[in-house]
Amino acid sequence: MKEILDAIVFGGGQAGLATGYHLQKKGLRFLILEASNQIGGSWPSYYDSLKLFSPAGYSSMPGMKFPGNQNRYPHRDEVVRYLQDYKIKFQLPVIFNQRVELVEKDRGGFLIRTMTGDIFRARTIINATGSFRNPFLPTIAGMEMFQGDILHSSEYRNPKSFHNQRVVVVGGGNSAVQIAVELTEMSQTSLAVVRPIQFVKQRVWGQDLHFWLKLIGFDTFPFWRFGKTAPRSKAVNDTNKYKERITAGKPYQEPMFTSFYKGGVIWPDGIKEPVDTVIFATGFRPQFPYLQAIGALDEEGRPLHKAGISIVPGLYYVGLEGQRSFASATLRGVGQDAEFIVKKLVQCLK
């Protein structure tokens, strides 16, 4: 592609689309490159029963209200449809099947090569791909000898294939709890945790938790101004009587096992237990190897930035966890971050 654009956005999920909205408002020439063949980023790949942790009324992106009852917690497929409709409503210029392979500096801007062999040029770049494609699996003694199945939560879809199995879910966050609770309907399931699960009530004094987070300003508090990333919540939103289920042992909550053996796991008291499947709900890590050549990453591959502004002039991020606030990587938070970044980008273009 010979035309040099004002900006190219990597990723057609919530962060990329919100960024496109604000780029369009500024009248800039831009494209959104999406690695897959559909809109939605990681949402189409999440497990079947996933629901938003925030009500519809607190889950809108800029310029378009999330439809339906504003007090309900939208299902995964509703979010995917919302993002698809968002792209259509604003006629955002998304090109599919364009996974970025390499970014190079080029004539005061950037040259972007994709896996298909296509070349794009832009004065600025906004990386909005998230980290779903890089699931984190901790290294645990004996893992290589375990003959059962080891999965990451990103590979889990529903409990049907685990019928009558002995399953251990590792993790103490929302996804770990949701997956473990629904697996108890089909299998003997335990939840292995480093520390006891902390629950937070979803509704306080008749209002959803997000009402209070917004009211006191915590949801969008600018931690970045103080040289910090926003803290990660270690509490689980009790949206579906999860605390009640776990208290009743459905599933059991167990201290994290110390190691694997051939047929299962070894618990802290030394007891060996046969296990069919271990599912790690241990999160994700940013991974942008295509940015390594321009000096945008540290030795561990993490982006070097402040509030989404890279140390490399002309490179920006939207959608990183804790980027500017507690809500940065969420539907409700990407819009404000995208607006902030586009303002900085416009200043760069002048």
Rank of each mutant, 00 (worst) to 15 (best):
F226W: 13
D219I: 02
D276N: 12
I271F: 13
F280E: 00
H210P: 01
D298E: 08
G206I: 04
F211K: 03
Q253H: 07
W224A: 00
M256V: 06
G227S: 06
L209R: 01
A248C: 05
P255V: 11
T277K: 05
E244W: 06
A281P: 03
D208V: 01
K250R: 13
K228D: 14
K214N: 11
F218P: 01
Q287T: 07
L297I: 08
K234P: 08
F211G: 02
S233F: 08
S233W: 05
V236Q: 00
A248M: 08
L209Y: 03
N237Q: 10
P289M: 10
Y242W: 14
E300Q: 10
L304T: 08
G301Y: 02
R232A: 10
L291C: 08
G206W: 07
P303M: 08
Y252G: 11
I197W: 04
P289W: 12
F223H: 07
I197Q: 03
R203A: 11
F226P: 06
T220G: 07
K272E: 14
Q292Y: 07
F223A: 07
K201I: 04
W267S: 05
T277P: 08
V278L: 04
K241H: 08
R302S: 10
L304M: 14
S259L: 06
F223T: 07
I216L: 13
A235M: 09
T277A: 09
M256E: 15
L213P: 00
R203Q: 09
I279L: 09
T258R: 03
L215Y: 08
W212I: 02
A230L: 04
P222Y: 10
S259N: 11
F288T: 05
I271A: 12
F221C: 02
V265M: 01
D208Y: 00
G270S: 13
I246E: 01
D269N: 15
G217V: 07
F211D: 02
G270Y: 15
F260D: 01
V278Y: 00
V275I: 15
K214Y: 09
H210S: 15
F288M: 12
P222K: 11
W224F: 13
F260V: 00
Y290D: 02
E244K: 09
R302D: 14
A296D: 02
Q292L: 13
K228I: 05
R302F: 14
D298M: 11
Q198D: 13
L209T: 01
I271K: 15
V278N: 01
G301V: 04
W224G: 01
T229G: 09
N237R: 09
F260L: 02
I216H: 05
A293S: 15
F218N: 01
F218M: 13
G217F: 07
T229H: 07
L215W: 14
I294M: 10
I294H: 06
K228R: 15
T258W: 00
W212A: 02
K228Q: 15
